[in-house]
């Protein structure tokens, strides 16, 4: 018995450090799921208005502007023309600009986009899944994502002016 005394002590203290460390360590990481600049953008897989599937992975390597919007939100409507204009301006330099609709009916989204003249790709969230992943609290919310998938900038609320969007896109391009 005496022979095993030391090993038993080590095993028990190791278990304590392991289990206790896990439990205590976890308590540091249970914060609310609000995204911050510098974090990686959460993955999503969504269909666009034509039924094609897009995921975040397919935008890797290009700077990406992700705009969450809904037809029920007047500021979202008001910043649509500015977004479209910026998209036209930067598209050829490799910018991707994607609108994610907040889980509304396809028909409403389609009519609305036509109505405000938004022709950049629009993806349809379902059951608020992606919206929750991105921890949205206010609409619109726009994420500026670097080519390596890191969130550089988050703009909560709107509408953003064209100059504002422009300066943020410039930063995405490292200018």
């Amino acid at each position: 018995m005496k022979r095993y005394r030391k090993p038993i002590q080590y095993v028990i203290l190791a278990l304590v450090i392991l289990i206790g460390g896990y439990a205590v360590g976890r308590s540091f990481f249970t914060t609310s799921p609000v995204l911050k600049p510098g974090q990686a953008a959460p993955e999503f897989v969504l269909a666009d208005l034509e039924g094609n599937v897009h995921d975040l992975e397919s935008y890797k390597g290009k700077p990406l502007v992700l705009n969450f919007w809904g037809t029920f939100c007047p500021p979202c409507r008001n910043e649509m023309p500015a977004l479209q204009h910026e998209y036209d301006k930067w598209k050829d330099k490799g910018l991707e600009l994607v609108g994610i609709n907040l889980s509304e009916d396809r028909i409403s989204v389609q009519r609305f986009a036509e109505g405000v003249g938004a022709y950049f790709p629009i993806l349809l969230d379902r059951n608020k899944k992606t919206e929750k992943k991105y921890g949205l609290k206010e609409y619109p919310t726009t994420f500026f994502i670097t080519p390596d998938g890191e969130i550089q900038d988050i703009v909560i609320g709107g509408p953003m002016s064209e100059e504002d969007i422009d300066s943020r896109i410039r930063r995405l391009f490292g200018e």
Binding site: F72, S108, R111
Partner: peptide
């Protein structure tokens, strides 16, 4: 033919039909 849907019908500040919420 369904042309548009407003789940929570209302008017925006320019008196255009819109949905107030989802």
């Amino acid at each position: 033919k369904l042309s548009d849907v407003y789940p929570d019908f209302g008017m925006d500040e320019q008196n255009r039909p819109m949905t107030k919420s989802r």
